[in-house]
Design a protein around this nucleic acid. Structure first.
Length: 486
RNA sequence: GGCGCCGUACCCAAGUGGCUAAGGGAGCAGUCUGCAAAACUGCGAUGCGGCGGUUCGAACCCGCCCGGCGCCUCCA
């Protein structure tokens, strides 16, 4: 039974879907005017894991994640580069998919774009105007916040407090300083659509309301996003949606914490942010490994806590992950003894499976869930020394795969990969890359085993050192063969 | 000014009223191995920012203080 921290109630609430057996969730995606950074990765990952856990728990998940493809920043970027807005949004949507695929973030079941929902948006704005919750000024339509009495209930703010703290120039045409745009009349050279109020484009908040209602219904289960969206974005979405329908909008509001750099929020103004592709590019590991390392790192902290990103933290995650793949290699090897510990191992697996599910059910406690996997790893290694049958070895590996899948971890076949293609070594000496192919490694290992047989340890050690210089580590097995990894 | 979060071993990080304070990384010692690597075993916070209080009992609840951070403006 899943419990989630609900920003609206401020407590851990039992998750009971509106329609039994089905979970409908909407997550605010990205505004596509730039590459995604590690903070976007965290948010996407967390809701991907929530979705996986809901599915693992037997629910059918309808998951909508939008692209904001009309926005001031997109227009500015297009103008800077002298290209169309479509060109900008297409570029960054494609980049988004590339990044997310490397991170192992699955696509949502529905991925709507604002520009594809202009009709829905216009209809919603009209509804609000008809109800007297919005007003028209010079072709702009504003939502009137004081017409929605519950305004501030998500972010726990009072309208008066907000007014006192307002630091922006207040548009004098607004009836209340916190009123926000539902529809903006367009200036020349801006993308625009026809509307009853003249050519214009949607405000930021209205698109999510319109798309969520279109795809998930007027009331649905989960709405999520980063903590910074609580105010004003989600607060405004609630005001618009509930204002228009008179019904509850989302029933559970889930927000993730930030990725920080040196205890500070990442931000462009501080210049301390890292894009996802930059991290992959700089990584010393192959993409598949880097992706898993990033996931492990991001999931080893609870989703609502801040998490500090650094090279050091990635190396720690890599180290922690190594143990799993070392174990999986051992599990692949034929059993030398009878499965004396099979029964005990079976019980341990069952226990850890329960611990894992219990942790995930407790507000997605991924740290605890990972700890359960680590305990299972330790127990398996111990049992392996005493003896596990071939069948049990396969069963255990499958167990890791099944639980790991909820977190998107432990799915790789093995931890040794072809090194990333080095940018064609066109350096001045025209030297070819010194990376070794798998066949090269196999040859050297064969030579070393031969050397060991005749007790030529000097040659054996030399070969090992040679491989080590290429980042290849050897592990000798008791039967005289060797396994290796990069 | 308003709202809110965090401070647990060398590092990361669970736990939030009651068994020996999870787990990982790093480290040290040992077993195994030609040597390694991996694995295994052992060591590592008598204490959870500080001081008071509530309680039979607190890292966990309350108060104050110290330190760090976030939101209130676009932002995952």
């Amino acid at each position: 039974m899943l419990y989630v921290h609900n920003t609206m109630t401020g407590s851990k609430d039992r998750f009971e879907p509106l329609v039994p057996g089905k979970a409908r969730m909407y997550v605010c995606g990205v505004t596509v005017y730039d590459y995604c950074h590690i903070g976007h990765a965290r948010s996407a990952l967390i809701f991907d894991v929530l979705r996986r856990h809901l599915e693992y728990s037997g629910l059918v998940v309808e998951f909508a994640k939008n692209f904001t493809d009309v926005d001031d920043k997109i227009i500015r970027r297009a103008n800077e580069q002298g290209v169309s807005c479509e060109s900008i949004t297409t570029t960054y949507i494609n980049a988004y998919y590339e990044d997310m695929e490397k991170l192992g973030v699955r696509r949502a079941t529905i991925e709507p774009r604002a520009t594809e929902h202009i009709t829905d948006i216009v209809t919603l704005v009209e509804r609000l105007l008809t109800k007297g919750m919005a007003y028209l000024v010079d072709g702009d339509v504003y939502f009137q916040v004081d017409r929605y009495p519950l305004y501030g209930s998500l972010s726990k703010r009072k309208l008066d407090d907000l007014q006192a703290g307002a630091r922006v120039d207040v548009d004098q045409r607004k009836r209340h300083p916190m009123d926000f745009a539902l529809w903006k009349s367009s200036k020349p050279d801006e993308p625009s659509w026809d509307s009853p109020w003249g050519p214009g484009r949607p405000g930021w908040h209205i698109e999510c309301s319109a798309m969520a209602m279109r795809h998930l219904g007027e009331t649905f289960d989960i709405h999520g996003g980063g903590m910074d969206l609580i105010f004003p974005h989600h607060e405004n979405e609630i005001a618009q949606s509930c204002g228009a329908t008179g019904k509850e909008f989302a029933r559970y509001w889930i927000h993730n914490g930030f990725v920080q750099i040196n205890q500070e929020k990442m931000s462009k103004s501080l210049g301390n942010f890292f894009t996802i592709r930059e991290i992959f590019k700089k990584s010393e590991w192959p993409d598949a490994v880097t992706g898993e390392v990033l996931r492990y790192f991001l999931l080893s902290t609870h989703y609502r806590s801040p998490v500090d990103f650094s090279d050091h933290s990635l190396r720690e995650a890599k180290g922690a992950l190594n143990g799993f793949y070392d174990l999986f290699e051992r599990l692949k090897e034929p059993a030398l003894s009878q499965g004396v510990l099979d029964q005990q191992m079976y019980e341990t697996t069952t226990r850890m499976r329960q611990a894992f599910a219990q942790a995930m059910d407790d507000d997605l406690n991924t740290s605890e869930a990972v700890a359960a996997l680590q305990r299972l790893r330790g127990e398996t290694n111990k049992a392996l020394e005493a003896g596990l049958s071939d069948e049990m070895r396969r069963t255990v590996r499958q167990g890791f795969r099944t639980l790991g899948a909820v977190l998107g971890l432990l799915q790789l076949d093995c931890w040794q990969f072809k090194p990333q293609l080095q940018p064609a070594s066109s350096d001045m000496h025209g030297e070819t890359s010194t990376t070794l192919t798998d066949d090269d490694v196999a040859d050297k290992i064969a030579a070393r085993i031969k050397a060991k047989k005749v007790k030529n340890y000097r040659l054996a050690d030399q070969l090992r050192a040679e491989l080590a210089s290429h980042g290849v580590t050897i592990e000798d097995r008791p039967d005289g063969t060797s396994r290796w990894k990069r």
